[in-house]
Design a protein around this nucleic acid. Structure first.
Lengths: 211, 211
DNA sequence: AAAAATCTTGACCGGTTGGTCAGACTGTGG
DNA sequence: CCACAGTCTGACCAACCGGTCAAGATTTTT
């Protein structure tokens, strides 16, 4: 029987270092973009020498790719609430709540995603064409069923989805602008609740669902 | 009386070159971000030697600043339609139309703006604090008046404005994603009309305005 | 305890970047 | 026609970037 492992076994430290690097990278990529980010900056933020980064992630692009993939994963998981709902009010309402939570607590990830898409998705184009396309068509089908069942107004499902994405992610991607317009203060708990409430209210009423 | 000027007088060529550079810069900054853009790339796209760029714009940052300022100008002008309307349906509907037109025909500008704000607005923070804040408060007042007059549902004016910005700019900033989800094809004229229609329909109904 | 595998790091490198500059070129006013 | 201010550009530079590498330190395996 192996002795009780020290808290820092080799495999544990590997995972720790990788997480340290990925978290630092997400922040730096979000704040400076891929081109503006430097490995040195990420290394400093992670508290590691630059050469160590290249041990875990051979190139800047491979590190970036991992960051974007992780974000995509968080994104997709949060979207599950859409399916588990019977009514549009439940499904879309819960989806808005989930995405607003991500925007609030994971804004860097949203920014990296936005930056990647704005630059014509050089790294994750295949994800857009496969996973995201499939997910979108699946959700569009659900919306169309709701419409056919007379549960909501007949709106174009794709443009509704775009509006959901745009509105919720706006609070992450343009968080700095919102903060500035809020007198330089980050939104308070109550203001975040009001934001969620407003978004849900307008969109749900907009698709003919009683709030 | 001076003789008929050649088409390329000195002042004309100056303006021409500046416009050439600014147009090229807008595209490159939009596609690569500030950090990823290079003066050489902008010079190539403008068809001028790099040193010539530095004659008109001493630094990369001064060129970038001018690009962002121009975008802000276009933005503000298009927002005028908001005021000239009597009813919420007219004002907000026309504003959505105007912003969707910008997203369609001026997407690079929107992307540069988004990128700048995402990076915490290092160049145009003062604009956010003065001009944009003033504009926003002015429009919020108009919306509040409409609400007080019972012309629309009582929604938070700021969050409504954020939703308008988010939704319309999404079609520029995330145009690549939308194109990919559209089978790799850009939106057709009819699809752009449908997009405008959907956005207006959902939002106007969402704020309790008969469409 | 020795050998093997894994991890860490300072020093280094070729290539690129933003920016400079001397000097050639050109339109303009006298 | 000339002198001058304004325009243009190839060649160049210091700084910085992503990435490499050899050698030492540390952990795991035998």
């Amino acid at each position: 029987m192996p002795q009780m492992q020290k808290p820092n076994s080799k495999k544990e430290r590997r995972l720790e270092s990788e997480k340290l690097i990925l978290d630092a990278a997400e922040k730096v990529f979000a704040e400076a973009g891929f081109g503006g980010a430097t490995m040195q900056l990420i290394a400093d933020m992670a508290g590691l020498p630059k050469a160590n980064l290249h041990y875990y992630f051979p190139t800047k692009e491979s590190l970036y790719r991992q960051v974007v993939q992780n974000i995509f994963q968080v994104w997709l998981e949060a979207a599950d609430v859409f399916d588990k709902a019977e009514t549009p009010a439940e499904g879309i309402g819960a989806y808005i709540d989930a995405k607003m939570e991500i925007s609030r607590h994971h804004p860097a990830g949203s920014k990296v995603w936005a930056s990647e898409v704005m630059h014509r998705a050089p790294v994750i184009q295949d994800y857009l064409e496969t996973t995201l396309t499939d997910w979108t068509e699946g959700r569009a089908t659900i919306i169309e069923r709701w419409i056919a069942e007379g549960r909501m107004a007949p709106v174009d499902p794709h443009h509704l989805l775009y509006m959901l994405w745009a509105t919720t992610q706006h609070y992450a991607d343009f968080g700095h602008q919102i903060e500035t317009l809020n007198g330089g203060e980050p939104l308070s708990d109550a203001q975040w609740d009001a934001a969620k409430q407003s978004v849900k209210e307008i969109i749900l009423r907009g698709i003919g669902v009683t709030v």
